[in-house]
Structure formats: C-alpha cells, structure tokens
Computed example of a mutant assay.
Amino acid sequence: MTDIAPLPRAFGDAVLSACMRRAPEDFQVDELPAFEASGEGEHLLLDVRKRGLTTVAVAGQLARWAGVAEMGVSYAGQKDRHAVTTQRYSVHLPKRVAPEPALLASDGVQVLASAWHNRKLQRGALAGNRFRLVLSEVEGERAAIDERVRAIALRGLPNWFGEQRFGRDGGNVAAALAMFGGRRMRRDQRSMLLSAARSALFNRVLAARVAGGVWDTALDGEVWMLDGSRSVFGPEPMSDALAERLARFDIHPSGPLWGVGDLRSSGAALALEQDALADAQASALRAGLEEAGLKQERRALRLRPALMQHAWLQEDTLELTFALPPGCYATAVLHELGTVRDASRDA
C-alpha cells in the first residue's frame, strides 16, 4: 500500500469522478506565512507568484537575478508545478542591494511583495496553505457531493500522506527498499526516499484505523497530538475532558512516523499499529529507517480543512476552497470525494 489510490474512504463509497488541472489556474495554492518580516537584516523576503514552474526552478531564477549562489536562496515549502501558486522565498544579500523586481518578471514568475528580514527563511516556516481547486467533467449526484463536502468540513478527514510523496506509480517505496538493500543514492534522493518509506508506514496504520472506523476516535493506549503542534502526550485513561477536547478538534489521535525507539502507544492502539506493520515489506521499511538513524515521532491521524466552501460554477464544474495545515495534502480531500484524474499527467 504505497499511495493514496487504494486507500479506504472514511465516509463510504466515492460520490464523484472528475478531472483536475486542465489548466494551471484550476489548481491554485497560496502559502500562509508563519511570521511578519522584521523590516531589517540582510535577507530579502519575496512573495512570489509562479505558474507552471517548480519551486526549485524559481529558486534558480532568483539566484541568477540576485547574482548569488543557489544556496543563498531558501523557501519554506515545495509547491506544485502544474498550478498557480504563491510562496515566500528569501535571498541572502549581505550588501542589502536588491535588483529591481521588474527584472525578474516573466510569464511564469511575478514578485508580489518584498521586505527585509534578519533571518534566512527556514524549511517548514509556514502557517499552512490555502487552496482553490476547480474540478471539471464532474459526474455524480449533486446532492450526494454537496453532503460529502459538508461532512468533511464538519468531521474532518483522515490525514493521509498524498501520492506526491510516493512518486509516479508509487515507485519511491520500491526505490527506498532498494536503497536499504545497498543501492547508492544521492543525498537529495536519500532524503526523499526516507520520507516516502515513513509515509507509507504511517498510511498503513491510518488505513487500518479507517477500515475499523476508529480514525477519529480514541483507542485504549492512544497517544494524542495537539492541534497545530507537534507536541504529543499520553497514553492516559480516556476521560470526559479528553473527549471534549477531541470533539472540538483541540487534540487528535496520532500514528507513528517510524524510527529508532519503542512505539509510545499502548494497549489496543499499540496492537493495531504492530499488526498493520507486521508484513515483510513493512518490516524491511522499518529496519531501513532504524538503520538510517531516524527517531520515532508521531503525526495526527485526523485533519479538518479550515474555511471549506464549494460552489458549482457550471453543471459539471465544481470549485472547492479550503486551507490546510503544513504537511497536509489537498489530494486527501479529493480522495474522500471520489476519483479525480490529473490532466497534467496526460501528456
């Protein structure tokens, strides 16, 4: 089980089939910054809108524009290529001389704002992402689709790692197994494959909990994660106070991000995690991650999109808007609706 396609759905059978990304404008992502610029320092923060380009390609353009090495350009997160996205970059300019933004403008890149800051932009330094997705060729009963969207907004959904983590046809997991078996990889490939292996194991545990109808409820021995944080606590006996916090999305059940050390869960939660990760492939992935020195961590099993709305632009065209925390995937939302073909892959 390596990507999102074969995973179970928390709300039952698919209610639609559709197509996305017929044009980059149909998949829009706006990064939500985690902080305000200080107004001083030697790092120039740039809010950039890009179209049809990878985050890394734009970083290269910024380096050439500023006359600095590519290592002098940083960004908080990667954004889709086949999309229109806005995100923040920082460029290290010790002499505080910034070229004109107009010199950078092209069909694919536009600088929306700039400000000085006293630190380099760090990976993960974002508050989340806001999405606008337009689905075309929608087939399905409109009332059922409307109800499914409302259910997701009210109850949340399983916090799957999206198929982007696993490469086309899930090939990153097979490559990770080959790497653990001795195949040499570049450092950047190694990091990507370690993440894919961890993500595949997490999705296995989450799939088991979805199949059992317990992805958003408490099991005995649960480890809890605070909403909007990486902080965890437990296990501890279930109480009215914990149930109330779970109901208002202040805390979430969590699953393992594999590494060295014992699982923190106990009781029924521990038994489920161990059973979900007991086969030969999972055992090989676990051993490889431990050998690589990663430590046991946790990830929330549940997420709730913020400000989720939908509108029918035409009889067969559906617009979805919502915001997600860092590290969460819009494809997880689409998965709960049904089967959505990505037109950008047709070429």
Rank of each mutant, 00 (worst) to 15 (best):
A5N: 15
V15E: 00
S17R: 14
R22G: 12
E25H: 08
Q28M: 14
V29R: 14
K50Q: 09
G52A: 13
L53E: 14
T55G: 11
A59I: 09
Q61E: 12
R81F: 01
V84D: 08
Q87W: 13
A102Q: 08
L104M: 07
N118W: 09
L121G: 02
R123E: 04
N129I: 11
S136F: 00
D146K: 02
E147I: 01
E147W: 00
R150I: 03
P158V: 01
E163S: 15
G167F: 01
D169L: 05
G170A: 09
N172S: 06
L193K: 08
S195P: 10
A200Q: 06
A200I: 06
W215R: 03
T217D: 13
T217A: 06
V223T: 05
L226Y: 02
E236D: 05
E236I: 04
E236Y: 00
L246D: 11
F249E: 14
I251T: 04
L257H: 01
G261D: 07
A271E: 15
E273K: 09
A280Y: 01
G293D: 10
R299P: 09
A300K: 01
A300M: 08
R302I: 06
R304I: 06
P305Y: 03
W312T: 02
D316C: 03
T321W: 02
T321K: 14
P326I: 08
V340K: 09
R341F: 07
D342N: 05
